[in-house]
Every structure is written in C-alpha cells, then in structure tokens.
Amino acid sequence: MPTMNIIQAVNNALRIQMAAEPKSIILGEDVGKFGGVFRATSGLYDEFGEERVIDTPLAEAGIIGAAIGMAVYGMRPIPEIQFSDFIFPAFDQIVNELAKFRYRSGGQYPCPVVIRTPVGGGIRGGHYHSQSPEALFIHTPGLKVVIPSNPYDAKGMLLASLRQDDPVLFMEPKKIYRASRGEVPEEDYTVELGKAKVVREGNQVTLIAYGAMVSVIEEAAAKAAEIGISCEVIDLRTLMPFDIETITESVSKNGRAVMVHEAPQTCGFGAEVCTSLYERCMAHLEAPIQRVCGFDTPFPYSLEHEYLPNADRVLGAIRKTLEW
C-alpha cells in the first residue's frame, strides 16, 4: 500500500472523483496550471482540462456563488477557497445560500457542493493564513463540516463528501498537510461521515480533538502514559453532524475528559461538545471537562507557538481533571 501525505491523499481522491464522475468540476484561485498554492490539485488541469479545472478570477463570493449555480444545474462542483481565512467574502453565499438552498426550496434544489479549504495555524501565517473558523459554519444549519487528521481519512472522507448530496465544508489542516503521512489505498473507498474514531483506548481520561490537534492529544496521551495515566484519544473527524455516541460512551466510561481545539475558546466547537456531554453523562463525571483551546485573541504571528495548544498544555489539563 502506498504511503501518502494529506495533500497527496486529497489529490488522489480528487483524481478518482474527477475520473469517475464527469459532472465533477473543480474551481478556485490558482487551482489550474499552478495546481493550487498547496498543490492539492496538482496535475488535474493537465488530466481533465481547463473546462473542468477552472482558474477563476480572484473572488470568493463568485467561486461559491458559481458553484451553487453549477450544483443547482446538476453538476458536482468542488470549489477551493485558498485559505479558510479568505472565505469571508463568500460568507453570504455559504451561510445564506448554499446551506439554505435545499430547505428554502422545499427540497427542490439540493446543493451538493464540497468546499475544500486549508484551515488552522502552525505555518507562520499570521492572522490571515492561520485561522480556524469552523464554529461559524457548524452554527449554520444545512452545512456539514469535516476536518480529517490523517491521509487515510482525508481521502476517504473527501470521497464520502463527494458521494452524498449535502453541502460540505471540507477543512484540511494545513500544518500537517505534509507532516502527516500514512498508508493510503490507491483504490476508491469512503470513510463514513458523522463517525468519530477512537485512535487510542484508555480508561482514565478521554481526550477529544480533530484536525491537526489530534496529533497533539496523541502526544499528550503518550506523555501521560509515561507517568501512569491512561488516556483514550478520540478524533471527531466530522464536526457537523458530530458523533455523540462515541464520545458519550467514552466519557461515561472514564468520567473525565479534555476537549482540545486551536480555534478560540469562547463559543468554539468545544463549548458545544462539553455541553452535550454534560447533558448526557453528568452522573458519570468525576471532574469538570477541561478545554484546551486557542486564546480569544486574533491569531498572532511571532507568538504563534505560544498560541497553539500543545501536549504540555493538554497534559496540564489531564492532571487537573485527575486532581479535581
């Protein structure tokens, strides 16, 4: 089985989809000849032509608006927003249009648009190449939100997103685009949306994260194991709709949990996860659920390494739940 990084896995999934489904069409800034600024669409322009891999003018509202029109017409557009920090000119098209089209037309017009966009910090990108705006979109009914953490899931979940009819915001953790490597089958396969994955089993504290933070909680779990603390590591993978069963089961079992994301803490997705868990496993909890998140500040440049949650901070939170 070949080894791929996330970029290669995404590229591989796109190639499979483009070959299998002639109605698939990729559009975005620099996705054609250049193959995308992160090379996710590399080679696709040569293989599928400029009518199906479209270099658009520099206008995110146009990219998403046009993708909606293509989907309404019966195509399967796969727009790319170069950085999720650049998604906001298209916010209206995503929130007011894409997510509501099926509902507002009484089911007449599903909009199978899969928006791919790199997300998160860790590449020294400052305010505008580092943000994690997922909560804004999870808060938008009608839109599914997916953030894979490894190449296998990236390919399988992208293909799964492309094979169902709801709009999906597919956010790719750019920090681990190349760093995360693993075995990925060449063939076509899907990973079911809405299912979390227990990455590591443990019986004292449940650690929950998604995207680039999964490797951080794995590292924290390993460090905890060295000092005799057993942690269960859960990769949420799909944030809307998220897998309540898996996390409820784990937290009910362990009675302690730490929620980690790099987006700012206040009104971050962790707030929803924690509340849902309190509603379901209050009786099993031995300590308040801890959150380790990005700070409620704009994403910094020079102090990026301090801003991002790391294994030490997660470990601190693990101790806190145990010392409660």
Binding site: L58, D85, F86, H127, H129, Y301, S302
Partner: peptide, 27 residues
C-alpha cells in the same frame, strides 16, 4: 515592532506617515 509581531512580515503600520496597516486578504 510597533505591531508586536502580530502579523506576517511586510505588513508594516506607520500612523506618523499615515501609512495604514494592511491585511493579507486581497481587496
């Protein structure tokens, strides 16, 4: 740095000469 390292390089800000701090986002 008057902006305390908050942005990527080449995003200077200088109120004295009325040079307004920019964003990386186009337009």
């Amino acid at each position: 740095d008057v902006t305390q390292g908050r942005q990527m390089p080449l995003h200077p800000s200088d109120p004295a000469t009325r040079y307004v701090n920019m964003s990386s986002c186009i337009a």
